[in-house]
Amino acid sequence: MRVIEKEKFFSEVKNLLIQTHYYLPEDVLEAIKNAISLENNEVAKDVLKKILDNATVASKTKLPLCQDTGIPQFFINIGNKVMLNFSVEQTINEIVQEVYETEKFRKSSVEDPILRSFVKHYSTVYLENNLGDTSEVEISVLIRGGGTENTVFNTTLLPTVELKEIIDTVYNAGVKLLPYSCPPAVVGVGLGGTVEQSIIIAKKSLLRKINQRNKNVFYSEMEIQLKQKFNFSNIGPLGLGGKTTVLDVFIETLPVHIACLPVSVVLQCHSFRRNTIRI
């Protein structure tokens, strides 16, 4: 059994969190460049170029990509042959406090939703243990700003609905929320599971790389169909019109109770701060 010490975990995750705020992922940069070559709307082209300029400025000056340094959400998956001999949640919290203070990231959360009180750095951790017989641990981080957290949709449909109704539900929710989510966005869709799981898998789908399709052909085709549909909506970058409304659509599914069909849609803005490492 391999043991990972707190010091190693701390320094690796600290580095991961810092990099995530200053560098837009390669696949996202590629998708934006691609979109520029396909757009003929002048305003849309301008916005997409500014997204690239922003990434250049952020990486050069070490100013965060977005002022909404948000809530970092960690998804941690632990292999069967590795042991972490410290509290992962507590350590993540320590890392977030240190990084957000030293890098001067914004304090974006209050202690209580109604009583509010002091502003602090808040983060979440989802721990899983299904990485298989490996001595590694996989750590992903997704920075969620207020705009993207406000553009999450969840409903439950009848288990007997036609496929068209599921697609329409996702599309209508997306079109309604997209103008508020700093498009071009990535659309995460969760189908099935229990209600809270459907939201979590929709969110976790955002950890996939752009153009990484669902392994099931049925769902990968549904992803492509939805992507095309969203990009015909003419919402465009920042809602100012154009072909580039979404960079991708990711669908994830889980087993579901025979009476239920939870559907969740989680939007992710173009400031797509996400990263994964293995230790």
Binding site: V47, K50, I51, D53, N54, V57, A58, T61, L63, P64, L65, C66, Q67, D68, G147, C182, L238, G239, L240, C269, H270, S271
Partner: peptide
């Protein structure tokens, strides 16, 4: 006016 959402580093200048 709408300005460049998600481009906080760019707008700094």
């Amino acid at each position: 006016l709408i300005t460049y959402g998600g481009c906080g580093a760019y707008l700094n200048q």
